[in-house]
Amino acid sequence: MPQPGATSRILVTGGAGFIGSHFVRSLFSGAYPGLAGSRVTVLDKLTYAGNPANLDPVRDQPGFAFVEGDITDAGLVDSLLADHDAVVHFAAESHVDRSITGAADFVVTNVVGTQTLLDAAHRREIGPFVHVSTDEVYGSIAEGSWPETDPLAPNSPYSASKASSDLIALAYHRTHGLDVRVTRCSNNYGPYQFPEKVIPLFITNLLDGGKVPLYGDGLNIRDWLHVDDHCQGIALVLEKGRAGEVYNIGGGTEITNKELTDRLLSACGATWDSVDYVEDRKGHDRRYSVDWRKINAELGYEPRHDFESGLAETVAWYRDNRAWWEPLKQRAGLA
């Protein structure tokens, strides 16, 4: 099967979303020399979280194409993969709270959609197939960090759907020899993130002088990963990763939600009077922490963005780009 290189034709699913669009913009900006000259087709359903404006900076690039469509559409997926030799699969329903109130879309998109892509990739002998997943599939960890060999123990419908898709993807490697490579990242942040996720939700609410909700005692711990570092890791896995392997991608900054809230209040010039303590989320995992020594040792991955400056730059981006996020919040009923 072809390896990524100057003549690669890459299908990027979910490429109009937060992480996928960053990957595409970075690729065309020359951030991934090993992928220089690649043709890229973005396949995106443009659900509430998919925004065509995220791709405006690359829309006129030679080699870029956009297709609006659903990864569960077997005919469409098969026809697209006939003209590609690699897949980077970002497309997913990803908001935990939404999965708690309604899990059906998560199962259809994350499980059935992934299986539909894998079927077509197998028929068309496509590879590599990079399946982008999450550390939430591991569950919750009181101390230490998860290596890639730890068993999966998801607690939310969202993380269960992603764990299911991970297992199906790896099964296609073991059964059919498909060149599948799985990445599992910690919590992402950065510009262009849909404002239902905690960091952009808090920033945009605070910039508007509003309140922010803090779940439970606020002591849940997350490892924060800048989207640019995450996409750097994905590019390395696409270029040099091994078939059938899982690679954790972490950011190296573990803080409680309460500490995160304090930093955002300070950055936005607000006080704790802006915080509403709310009932804890059902099945709220207490702590996430991935061991990313494998991708560091094998592929040379290293986070380049320290959290303090990365968060300050993110706050500044939302402050300067109201025209991007205000319509999104209004349409999603978040305003």
Rank of each mutant, 00 (worst) to 15 (best):
V137S: 03
R98G: 01
P157H: 04
L299S: 10
G113M: 11
Y189L: 04
A6G: 15
S161C: 08
I168V: 15
E326P: 00
S159R: 07
H284G: 07
S274E: 10
V246C: 14
D85N: 13
A86S: 15
A103F: 12
E313C: 05
E125I: 02
G50W: 01
D208A: 15
H84K: 08
T13C: 05
L264F: 08
C268M: 04
F194Q: 06
D320C: 05
A332Q: 13
T204C: 09
A312E: 15
L328Q: 13
W317L: 00
Y318L: 07
A104C: 02
N188T: 15
N296K: 13
G283H: 11
V212N: 11
P200A: 05
L118Q: 05
G37E: 00
D119E: 07
S289T: 09
I126R: 00
V87A: 07
P151E: 10
G5Y: 02
D44A: 07
I71G: 00
V137Q: 00
V132H: 01
G333I: 11
S159D: 08
R59Q: 13
D291A: 10
R242M: 11
P147L: 03
A153H: 09
V130Y: 00
S38V: 00
R322Y: 03
I203C: 01
A86Y: 04
L207G: 06
L206C: 04
D285T: 08
K240S: 15
R281G: 06
A16F: 01
R286V: 03
P327V: 00
T7L: 14
S38P: 05
H284F: 12
C231F: 02
S164R: 02
L264G: 04
F307P: 05
Y215T: 14
T256S: 15
T134Y: 11
A31T: 05
G233H: 04
N51Y: 04
A297L: 14
A169F: 03
D135I: 00
I10Y: 01
A121N: 11
A16M: 03
R286Q: 15
N220R: 12
G37W: 04
G241M: 08
A316F: 07
P154Q: 05
W292R: 12
G113Q: 06
F28Y: 14
W224I: 09
P57S: 05
T109N: 14
F129V: 13
A103E: 10
T41H: 08
S29A: 15
I168L: 14
D291E: 09
G233E: 04
N296D: 13
